[in-house]
Design a protein around this nucleic acid. Structure first.
Length: 108
DNA sequence: ATAAGGGCACCGC
DNA sequence: CGCGGTGCCCTTA
């Protein structure tokens, strides 16, 4: 399956993640056609130049662990905590409940 | 044309 | 159930 999406498109979608919720690289990838684009999504987010406008810190790993961040995982965790999302041992507390799916994201 | 990257799912132990 | 290894074959530099 060919998707062809750019960094810009990923950022647009990321902007839709509401405050206090999180999603995963895989979920974003699904929005572009297949979960196997998850890697590319990570690269696209890393390329994010408008860190304030795009909440890329709300994108975490599918297993609940926060994953990486261009400014360091510590910073990512700090930003999440500011929004009321608690992280314990590198893992998002209540990950399942806070997770927002592609369909929810697209119907916004 | 190549390497690296903020990942995912599956398998074996 | 948890951990490590492996294939997948995307985008950007």
């Amino acid at each position: 399956m060919v998707a062809h999406f750019s960094c810009e498109e990923v950022l647009e979608l990321t902007k839709k993640i509401p405050r206090g919720r999180v999603t995963t690289y895989g979920e974003l990838a699904k929005a572009f056609g297949s979960i196997r684009f998850s890697r590319a999504v990570g690269v696209a987010l890393k390329n994010n130049r408008k860190l304030v406008k795009v909440p890329c810190h709300r994108v975490v790993r599918s297993n609940g662990y926060v994953g990486g961040y261009s400014r360091g995982s510590e910073e990512k965790i700090r930003l999440l905590r500011e929004e009321g999302i608690l992280v314990e041992s590198g893992k998002v507390c209540g990950f399942r409940e806070k997770l927002i799916t592609v369909s929810e994201l697209l119907s916004h």
